[in-house]
Computed example of a mutant assay.
Amino acid sequence: MNAVKASVIISTYNQPQWLEKVLWGYQVQTFKDFEIVIADDGSNAETKVLIDSFKKNSPLEIKHVWQPDQGFQKTKILNKAIVASAHDYLIFTDGDCIPRNDFVSEHIRLRRRNYFLSGGYFKLPKPLSEAITRHDIEHQDCFKLRWLQTHGLEKNFKANKLTAFGFKAWFLNTFTPTKATFDGMNVSGWKKDILDVNGFDERMQYGGEDREIGERLMNKGIAFRQVRYSTICLHLYHERPYLNALALEKNKLIRKQTKRSKTVVTPYGITKLT
């Protein structure tokens, strides 16, 4: 397969202190042929100042796609970011997920036609999230289990995500009971396939909005491959004030209809078909 450049689409909303750490992580990637498209769902000026500083002082190629704050409208800004992306292969992640330095290279190495890659994350508590510095990211200390334990992390089975390489990573990816899905904080696939299903359903709010596009991709014939022990990112702590019971119920009904009717193309996506 010929070399492919990637577009990394990072969603964010008013978390500049976390986004800064994430962008430090992308500055030290071993694979360099990628752009960053920041899908900004209405952040205030502080986020723009941060992004403009990175554009000026960083080697990263960054596009900032912004929309006014009208509540949780992540699906809309993601569709705009998809349109703005320049490359054939898309990696979706969040502005609170620090990538290990092989994050992009592993997504590129493992890519296959007619497949999407389903990654995971290693969740950190608030004090540890705050303790990570630029030095820790640039030297990759924060991805070392011993460093994390020194800073208060309790070891559990999930720590295998940080210690699995080679055969161990393959084995755990292959035999994990966790289902491979479209998880918006760590997933990748081909832009053409995303466009074929018309992107994200813009009726969806928080709660399963990423799973719904994954279900339409599967209806199209795309398979999902588990790579949660290969494409590693640290998920920084944050509250979820946008949880909404009514929105969750609406999302469930949309997903139910997608599954029942085997929907491939949403009429409420990048191109409005209604």
Rank of each mutant, 00 (worst) to 15 (best):
Leu145Arg: 14
Ala159Glu: 08
Pro177Ala: 03
Thr176Glu: 03
Lys191Trp: 02
Thr163Tyr: 05
Phe122Tyr: 13
Cys142Ser: 06
Gly120Val: 00
Leu172Glu: 07
Gly166Met: 03
Met185His: 08
Lys191Cys: 02
Leu128Pro: 01
Arg134Val: 08
Thr178Pro: 09
Leu162Met: 09
Val187His: 01
Phe165Cys: 12
Ile132Leu: 04
Leu195Asp: 05
Trp190Pro: 09
Pro125Ala: 12
Cys142Tyr: 03
Glu130Val: 11
Lys192Leu: 11
His151Val: 10
Ser188Cys: 10
Cys142Arg: 01
Gly166Trp: 06
Glu130Asp: 10
Ile194Leu: 05
Lys192Val: 12
Thr150His: 07
Gly189Lys: 02
Phe157Pro: 07
Lys192Arg: 13
Cys142Ala: 03
Phe167Trp: 06
Leu172Ser: 02
Ala164Asn: 09
Leu148Ser: 05
Val187Arg: 00
Lys191Ile: 00
Gly189Val: 04
Ser188Asn: 08
Gly184Ala: 04
Trp147Ile: 04
Phe122Asp: 04
Asp141Lys: 15
Leu195Trp: 08
His135Tyr: 09
Leu162Thr: 01
Phe165Gly: 12
Tyr121Thr: 11
His139Glu: 11
Asn186Asp: 08
Leu124Gln: 05
Lys155Met: 13
Phe175Lys: 14
Gly166Glu: 02
Gly184Asn: 00
Asp183Glu: 13
Ile194Asp: 00
Ile137Thr: 07
Gly184Trp: 04
Phe182Asp: 02
Arg146Tyr: 13
Ala131Phe: 13
